[in-house]
Design a binder for these strands. Structure first.
Lengths: 151, 151
DNA sequence: TTCGAAACGTTGGAACAACCAACGTTGGAA
DNA sequence: TTCCAACGTTGGTTGTTCCAACGTTTCGAA
């Protein structure tokens, strides 16, 4: 929807959920373009970054932390393991679990993708002052915090 | 990303694009649940609301205004016409076009869905004061305005 | 100690949004 | 007249988010 300028219906495009949706769509698009250079997608980045930041974890645990369904974690970890960015090993202490760890190459990739995300972030927030960026972050955090608590 | 200074939950959860994405996902889920009661989806609402607000239009025009691809407009209008909520008629002035108009039932449905959207909106923004809601709306509008102008 | 509930990884598939390519028809400008 | 653009339509693809079910493994309560 990024082609022609959509003449905005006054009622529709002033609703926060519409604005949120459009902003997120645009952000996701920018991110997706950035990730394409790494030949990876959002799920991979979330998992890789979480692993790099918080250390090894089971797949179910990763899913909970990243907000990704267990079944989707499987596929994404398959991809990452196939590239040698993470290692999947059975947990000797609990044979139901796999322990996922980043490799050195995985850590490098996580840093590289982090740089990409930083770039995209700067692009996305270009029209906002740093105070406004803080404001936006604060408001969205409050929103999510509230809705997370009642679930 | 802020891999240099990770915050309490994780560095991931403080990036605006992540917050935007999560907020929009939550909003979309609430909306989707609301729309389910009408047995319709987001595309249908956008089209119906735009028609009700701005009057009859061609399908291509609708697509541009709503930010929906031409091909998706076809399917959505098929659904709406099949329910008698809109009417599809050939434009005598330009035989390439169809003119889409809302029926009375369509206008009723648009109002009903509008009420649903209002309810969802209130639920979504519950944790924010009205000043903060304005702030959020303003920030997101600025964001979109900026990015729309350079495409 | 036994047994049922729960968690785990995995497979397969669904829904939805967004998008793209191509076709035949029609309109308008060069 | 010729050629390009716009239109509606068909038939896809991709990515994200879910859900249901399975066999295996663990753990808690009877």
């Amino acid at each position: 929807m990024d082609h022609a300028a959509p003449q905005s219906p006054a009622g529709l495009n002033t609703t926060p959920s519409w604005l949120l949706n459009q902003s997120a769509t645009h952000a996701a698009r920018l991110l997706s373009e950035g990730f394409a250079a790494h030949d990876l997608r959002g799920y991979h980045y979330r998992l890789l970054a979480t692993l790099a930041e918080e250390g090894p974890a089971s797949q179910a645990d990763l899913g909970r932390r990243c907000g990704i369904d267990r079944s989707d974690v499987v596929a994404a970890i398959n991809d990452l393991a196939g590239r040698g960015l993470v290692v999947r090993a059975p947990d000797p202490a609990d044979r139901r679990r796999n322990v996922i760890s980043v490799t050195d190459a995985g850590a490098d990739e996580a840093r590289a993708m982090g740089a990409t995300v930083d770039r995209v972030q700067a692009d996305l927030l270009a029209p906002l002052s740093s105070t406004e960026r803080e404001q936006l972050t604060r408001l969205l955090t409050r929103l999510l915090e509230h809705h997370r608590r009642r679930h």
